[in-house]
Write a protein that binds this DNA or RNA. Sequence first.
DNA 1: TTTTGAGTTGTTCGA
DNA 2: GTCGAACAACTCAAA
Length: 480
Amino acid sequence: MSGTIVWFRNDLRLEDNAALRAAVEREHPVVPVFVDDSVKNDVWAPGAASRWWLHRSLISLNRDLQNLGSQLVILRGDPAEQLQRLTQDYAADSVYWNRRYEPELIFQDERVKMRLEEPGVEVRSFPGNLLFEPTDICTQQGNPYQVFTPFWKACLAYREPDEPTAGPVAIPAPQEWPDSLSVGELGLNPRIDWDAGLQEAWEPGFDGAQRRLEVFLQEAIAGYQAGRDRPDLQGTSRLSPHLHFGEISPRQIWHAVQRECRTDRRTTEGQSVERFSAELGWREFAHHVLFHFPKTPDQPLRSQFSRFPWVEDEAALKAWQTGSTGYPIVDAGMRELWSTGWMHNRVRMIVGSFLTKDLLISWRAGARWFWDTLVDADLANNTLGWQWISGCGADAAPYFRIFNPVSQGQKFDPDGAYVRRWVPELEAVPSRWIHEPWNAPAGELNAAGVELGIDYPEPIVDHAEARRAALAALEATKGD
DNA sequence: TTTTGAGTTGTTCGA
DNA sequence: GTCGAACAACTCAAA
């Protein structure tokens, strides 16, 4: 028999899946496979929240495959070994997959390819998880971009992203299925019961992604330009975890958004579409930068930041992680993250600025915490975001841009609804003081049932002082 | 090679 | 309360 193995990774969907499509078109049996190799001791192996999501996404994918007369074969171990064994046992002559772009994963894919090709198996990889391949776009000198705006202009001038392709209507099955683990046997699901907030917030899988996109198109895209910055409203798409796991393709989102709002770019709607499209562009940019600067997950892109005097302060880090810094907008964000596995982007910037500039704790500590707790944890996006906010990365914020957690709260959570939702002990504090309870008159705090230091922490640092210290620390990175 | 224009998301100060 | 300018100087990308 000749057959095709389709190796699923961060592309857990049937629609707009180039590898699956090519495999089905061969009209030979297709064996969809997922290989869990997270047992290996990799610092960037998926964190707990990612594993929670993956568990559900695999179940969803398996169900979708079963509806087409197929199923997902789940294996564990070294992918090269597992795939080679499978091709031998089942005399499959081809292995197809969609490309990944993280340095370690590219390395791994090359290794798997060599190992499979040696005995004569055909290996084909396909694009599809990005709108543009990282090597498609370069400056006129042939270098990678390090600034977003010219990068994104070059992308848009390069070509319109392809239309997404439909999923298969049937998938030819092999006569006999290989042994497979169940999803549960991978042990991705938490053993202790901490995931109620995630359950409530998310529906992993293709169907959940489609519904999320639909809601965004119906309710938020038209006002995205203004709504995107408001953590107290549902102004963003919340598609990031679905995109990370490839349950929906960026091309599908791109074209759905363009179709939905075919309006003049001078209108609010038109600007909103452009703005949202640019956010997909930032995802592209993050992958472009990671591809061309593969050390950035651990090292600052701007090398002078290697001598930045980061502080090691376990107690302060713990206060940040647990949402007990005494700054309500920061604590709300960190608790939203802990509870739902997600945090609004505006608030990610606020908590990132607070960790790196108010506490002077390294962006790498922040990146690690996000890595474990975010359901959308993505090496490219996480690395770019943390290097950007701390000032050491591509197109980074200028050093003097230090977020004031009080004014950011007042500006983007004007009624304090977001803070009240995630920091319920401040629920009765008047809006005037919700973002700076330490400045509230004693009587008003009392009436709200809050005693600082008892019911809610005093600020762990003074922002004005911390700001001066951060500017001074930045001096230390100057010169050669 | 050299020059020039520009750069996601802010804050603070002083008029 | 609102507004504009300063913050300091650098790097990238294109001409």
